[in-house]
């Protein structure tokens, strides 16, 4: 009986310490979703008011992507529809990724950022989408050195250069990978970014969609 009371005492002290620690050091588990869908946000930012041209005409996509997350079971997007997303407040459809990629990443306007969040060692170097910067939760939290426009800087400094409204599209390995969602949580809660989206089908989906891939340790493969 004495041991049980002592065990509860130890738990009590641990909980008090945890409470004080959590008060001193805030952490975040999952950021709120965006108030608008990516499509609505695109129309708002680009001022077109008409996103119809962004939707892939039926049958045009030669090799439809399955964005369904098998882990989610029911409630996921329709298999074979590349523009279906399971949570419109978090995920961006392929049609928009293509449009933003063509308008901003390929043109290097600096108004959109594509992030490869895959954390497994060596996968980014093996192959990534051309122009995608390698920022993982570890790289960001540990402030690893990165290179932006040829200038070496810390990962946190790099992300501080992103304006809140800038398009940020994150991908990881597709399927059930958490890396995109965790990184989005950090970017929204710690860096105040408001236009951060996850591409659910991840790297395999973008590769399958025909976006240019490249190897190497920098966005452009050098």
């Amino acid at each position: 009986m004495t041991s049980v009371m002592r065990a509860f005492s130890i738990i009590g002290v641990a909980m008090v310490a945890a409470l004080v620690h959590s008060w001193l050091v805030g952490i975040t588990i999952a950021a709120e979703g965006n108030e608008k869908t990516a499509q609505e946000r695109f129309e708002e930012l680009d001022g077109s008011g008409n996103g119809a041209d962004l939707v892939d005409p039926v049958g045009q996509d030669p090799d439809p992507i399955d964005q369904t997350d098998p882990a989610q079971g029911t409630g996921g997007p329709v298999v074979g529809d590349p523009n279906a997303v399971s949570d419109p407040s978090l995920h961006i459809p392929l049609s928009l990724v293509r449009k933003i990629y063509a308008d901003h990443i390929e043109q290097m306007t600096g108004e959109a950022l594509l992030i490869d969040a895959r954390g497994t060692e060596g996968v980014y170097e093996q192959g990534h989408i051309w122009g995608a910067e390698h920022i993982t939760t570890d790289i960001l939290m540990d402030d690893h050195p990165v290179s932006y426009a040829g200038v070496p800087m810390g990962a946190q400094e790099r992300m501080a250069l992103v304006s809140p409204d800038q398009w940020v599209i994150i991908y990881c390995g597709g399927g059930d990978c958490d890396e995109s969602e965790n990184l989005r949580t950090l970017l929204v809660d710690s860096f105040g970014l408001t236009n951060v989206w996850i591409f659910e089908a991840g790297y395999p989906g973008l590769e399958k969609a025909g976006l240019q891939t490249i190897g190497g340790s920098t966005p452009f493969g050098e």
Partner: peptide
């Protein structure tokens, strides 16, 4: 519970 556990588990480990 993840939020609580992220602090409580290591503190419990430390005290134990």
């Amino acid at each position: 519970l993840i939020h609580v556990s992220a602090f409580a588990i290591p503190w419990l480990e430390a005290l134990v």
